[in-house]
Design a binder for these strands. Sequence first.
RNA 1: UCCUCAGUAGCUCAACGGCAGAGCGACCGGCUGUUAACCGGUAGGUUGCAGGUUCGAAUCCUGCCUGGGGAGCCA
Length: 464
Amino acid sequence: MDRVTVRQLVSGAESYAEKQVTLNGWIRNNRDQKSFGFIALNDGTHFNTIQIVYEREFLPNYDQVAALGVGSAISISGKLALTPEARQPFEIKAAEINLEGESPSDYPIQPKRHSREFLREVAHLRPRTNLFTAVFRVRSLLAFAIHQFFQEKGFVYLHSPIITANDAEGAGELFRVTTLDPKNPPVTDGEAVDYSADFFGKKTNLTVSGQLEAEAYALAFKDVYTFGPTFRAENSNTPRHAAEFWMIEPEIAFADLNDNMDLAEEMVKYLINYLLDKAETEMGFFNQFVDKGLKERLENIKNSEFARITYTEAVDELKKAKQKFEYPVEWGKDLQTEHERYLTEKVFYKPVFVTGYPKDIKAFYMRVNGDQKTVAAMDLLVPGVGEIIGGSQREERAEVLEQSMADFNINKEDLWWYMELRKYGGVKHAGFGLGFERALMYLTGVSNIRDVIPFPRTVNSCEF
RNA sequence: UCCUCAGUAGCUCAACGGCAGAGCGACCGGCUGUUAACCGGUAGGUUGCAGGUUCGAAUCCUGCCUGGGGAGCCA
């Protein structure tokens, strides 16, 4: 008797036709009648359930099986029957059904539609629903696709540190890493906390970006990427922000901003192709139940050039717009969400790169353009989600970088090693950060980041 | 952090100053191919919490808590 998975059956049921098979799984739905019943079983290996038909005539424990609730784990043995006229192409005629783990009647997941908000409260059980089965199968595939894309191109995968003493954004919103006693920390003469007595002998935090370290490795391996967890202690409560998320950060040497955008565009298209090919069932589900226009939109993007526009052009475009904006558009100010959405959703109807932002509103490491006013930065805006990529060509000229650091009040002693990358064989290089979850949202149509992270961490929320 | 909306049965919602309800789920029963099955019945409530107004509050007012959406910040 063959032990099989639904995945195996879906990929070739014919070879099992009329044969005895054994399956394990969890009951999604159980309906019984007087002398026969049906179980929809999900065994975890495929999005689809398999229908189990059981009959009083053949099952000595028929009444026990008929009483099994949703969520129960069972093992079943029976004959595989092809049913080309039915809604499902095959089913199992059960000869034996054994209870492996019961699920009492207070099991919170019902065979009906639940709100996303409710399912977040049962995040340990929600992977047993259709939506989350699809989301997390795709999350796994997307992670693999990212590795495959970069590996095929010869990029080296870099594990940048999780604990770090540098603050790549120059922002203050970091999770402190310390072993000091919060009630009674060691104190210097001036009564400040004495971090030299801390575990690492200095102030440390969880990483907000692996970029600076990636630059070091790009200047050795030419093309590298990081892909790992990232932590931001921002007090932002939106459907697009989480305190713990994953980020992909490629860094390429002997490359400029155009090479960077070409890479980003190629990557996004690769990921779309990968999912449409490898996750057909799940993508079909998203298209039908989550975002009706999803497939059409993704298909269009595969075949179109992403728009590219400079910040200055974007400002002109926005000033010409008939639409009224809450915030006025003005050269020198950052684009508001409403402006970004207008550009990607009303002007271009597709992903758009915006480049050449004013240097005052961007990070210190971005390469200063010839006009001395803008930097070689690029953001990729996509309809529905907004910014999913932020990147730049890096400042490789030591003296210009030093000036920028001074302008941004960044202590160059702390980044002595970063400066040395410019001193020893420094070359032009560029890179970007892709928010993994934001990409996942964009590619699945799921509109809240809390629903694409298994156990999301957000402000005031760290359950599970 | 600011703005805004909402918290009523396990879930999704109705009742909007006058007896707290429905569908789904659960439980009991029926049904020879169901598939978010269908049909009949039963149970299930301190209306988020604390105050206040009123003869009377789920409903109006105040504060707090929780959640959603928008903004800022960003990926």
